[in-house]
């Protein structure tokens, strides 16, 4: 939510956007991201993982209502030039393994965030705030 941070352009941006890229090469300019963009992107990426609280599509901050599986995970990011360190608060569906789920969260975020924002993830701190019981019938996956 604080200072904007400089993000370098990935040099290999391919397909089709030649006009924009060309203009950028002639007269370079910076692209900056607010921390909030990284936080929302990470929270959204977490919804792609099964057994993590926050599988329903809600915007970060709207966490006071609804069962855990429908809330968003809370993410705060501290973004440095080209890297991001994340602090994640999430809940996990009860029978799922906490160790393997958090491992999955880390590997998913370190893969997805660079894809979406161009930032490298240096650290993911995870706080598991609750183990929730998946409601039979409502939270079932496939």
């Amino acid at each position: 939510m604080t200072a904007a941070t400089r993000v370098p352009h990935p040099a290999d941006a391919d397909d089709g956007q030649d006009t924009g890229r060309g203009a950028e090469r002639d007269l370079p300019g910076r692209t900056t991201l607010a921390d909030r963009v990284v936080e929302r992107t990470a929270a959204q990426a977490l919804t792609e993982i099964a057994d993590v609280g926050g599988t329903a599509h809600r915007i970060l901050g709207d966490t006071l209502s609804g069962p855990p599986e429908e809330r968003s995970a809370q993410v705060s990011a501290s973004v440095d030039d080209t890297t991001a360190a994340l602090n994640v608060r999430l809940s996990i569906a009860y029978p799922a393994s906490v160790a393997s789920t958090t491992h999955q969260v880390r590997s998913h975020l370190t893969r997805r965030l660079p894809e979406l924002t161009g930032l490298v993830v240096t650290r993911v701190d995870i706080t598991v705030t609750a183990l929730y019981l998946a409601q039979p019938g409502s939270g079932r996956v496939r």
Binding site: A4, E24, D26, G29, R30, T32, L33, A34, R36, T41
Partner: peptide, 14 residues
């Protein structure tokens, strides 16, 4: 499109 000076982009929210 092309401008005569650098273009800075700030993404403030998603």
């Amino acid at each position: 499109g092309p401008l005569d000076r650098p273009l800075h982009l700030h993404i403030g929210d998603l």
